[in-house]
Design a protein around this nucleic acid. Structure first.
Lengths: 339, 339
DNA sequence: TTGAAAGCGCTAACAT
DNA sequence: ATGTTAGCGCTTTCAA
């Protein structure tokens, strides 16, 4: 591998001059610049990132750690991140923690060794709610690094974050369902131990209440965001005598669980479904149900996260910003529904 | 940021000793080792990757470049890669080219600067079939780096690769459909300019021929792997008087296009469908069609790719290996079909 | 406009 | 068992 020293010798100048030519820093005469460029071109010289990093004491890479890159939710986010990162000429070091705290800790450690410029982090758990989480939180703060959190917001969090507007959007979902002609609703809710779980339920409940959409307590099914669990709950719901006009699921997995149950029970009519997810619009469409799709623009989330990070690089002392991404709502077919 | 020098001073030893303690290389007495460890622990010292890389003249990161990480196909692959990489304590630098050759070239350039240990590459085009591709191919060979190609295999390719067993698996698909009771079939094929397109058609055709499954030329619909295109073709197929017993689509997008058409035409019965894809099993299941699912184990593909790369690190001179991943076949409900 | 030299944080002979 | 020293490839004063 050819080095700056080789280039310098070949061009008959010093390393310093080559460096200046490379970075357009300081003066270098047009002729020598030209000669250097030729050598570089000819030998395909590319400076070693490690050497540059070490010398400049800063890198141009940022760390990305997510719970599960094979999950379309995160894959889309990462896609958004890559896009903006590319615009800013930053490289990404990616870690997949598999929702495992040990791997999450290891990832942070490695990123620290790499001396990354910043981190975009999708935490696998709520750091504020376990000793292990708090430890990691401290580890992160001790790095004194720009950090952007995605999809989570917990008490005392010191960093920028981009999260979904869970409460407001769920509130709106209820209103929209009512507006479309529905009068009674059910919900398969998520884990009440998680803020996102509470926010989505609270928002939907308040929204329903404010517009007169009936949401009885016994029509709220408490799940844990998992497909299996939601499947069971949906089966319970669907085998009842009376079905509500509308159903609000609370995430991708819940949606899938419901669809599975719907297939088994073969009771497709009579329910408007407000599903939440970031995919599969095209597919669920064929169910023949009236589906109101509420989807999360995950790509945008990633792009925004990278953008926040960049702003933080430029203004290290600006106040913390929380970026709320609203759900997009599509009321397919619901308009036709009448009670 | 605390350095090895600081640690050495705090422990009252030389940098060399700290280095030895750090890497378990050479001798270092238990007492000094202990003292050093304490300092490290206390001050959270972590060696700078750049410095280590520069000194050792080698890194522990590998480059991953894919056309579109937001595509579940690649997301899954990357998931598999991260898993194996984690086991091997390697970091990943990820690039998303967006099927853009310029970005692909840039990615390679950056990876070269980073002096990555190896590259796993999902090419956006067939390098052997354009001047631009050939240029990149040369750029890559000039790096003299272990490289593993995923999902493509072209003439004269000098690297290890992990690809789908398109021909064989398509062959088997035909056989399985016959075995399940089908006697006539149609296929929505992909782009004949691409090897994967040809392989899938050729394999299916030969398989059908060998077992007696009828596949008339007019029942082969030539598409281009896109959803929109497949949708149009599927509509043509579905509006015919006579439907074949079975249909073989050739990729995810084709499947979606077909499903969309099926919904519109509302002619769900009468077709056994052998779909190919790596997702949505759960969803299409609810269509009420008899669906034979042929899916690609993408996670496994990524894992294998990383494994191949590792083997290449260990045995730089072993002959090139082409790893064929077979499709998984699930014949749901097809068994009940009778002619 | 250019070069010499020191230094970034670490490793790896070589001495002791 | 430990220290000294040179060097990895680059940047950046400081001189010239």
């Amino acid at each position: 591998m050819i080095t700056i020293k080789d280039v310098a010798e070949l061009a008959g100048v010093s390393k310093a001059t080559v460096s200046r030519a490379l970075n357009n820093s300081g003066y270098v005469s047009p002729e020598t610049k030209k000669k250097i460029d030729e050598i570089i071109e000819k030998y395909h010289y590319l400076p070693s990132a490690s050497a540059v990093n070490l010398s400049k004491q800063e890198t141009t890479t940022i760390g990305v750690v997510v719970p599960e890159i094979g999950n379309l939710f995160y894959a889309d986010i990462v896609q958004g991140i890559t896009r903006k990162a590319d615009e800013l000429d930053l490289s990404l070091v990616l870690f997949d923690t598999g929702n495992n705290m040990e791997r999450e800790e290891k990832a942070i450690r490695v990123l620290q060794q790499q001396r990354v410029k910043g981190i975009i982090l999708g935490p696998s758990i709520d750091y504020a709610e376990s000793k292990r989480g708090k430890k990691l939180l401290k580890q992160l703060t001790d790095m004194h690094l720009p950090i952007v959190i995605i999809d989570r917001d917990f008490e005392q969090m010191p960093w920028d974050a981009v999260i979904y507007e869970n409460y407001q959007s769920s509130y709106r979902a209820a209103q929209e369902l009512y507006r479309a002609g529905n009068r009674t609703a059910a919900m398969i809710a998520g884990d009440m131990n998680l803020k996102i779980g509470r926010d989505r339920l609270d928002g939907f409940r308040k929204g329903a209440q404010d517009c007169g959409l009936e949401l009885k307590e016994e029509d709220i099914f408490y799940g844990n965001f998992s497909m299996e669990d939601s499947y069971q709950l949906a089966k319970k719901l669907l085998t009842r005598e009376e079905l509500p006009d509308a159903l609000y699921t609370c995430n991708n997995a819940t949606t899938l669980g419901f669809l599975k149950a719907a297939k088994e029970v073969k009771r497709k009519a009579g329910v408007d479904i407000a599903l939440i997810g970031n995919d599969r619009i095209d597919i669920v469409d064929i169910l023949g149900m009236n589906i109101s799709w509420i989807y999360r623009d995950t790509y945008n989330m990633g792009y925004t996260a990278m953008q926040l990070l960049q702003e933080r690089f430029e203004h290290p002392d600006k106040p913390r910003s929380l970026c709320m991404i609203p759900y997009q709502v599509e009321l397919n077919g619901s308009e036709k529904k009448k009670k």
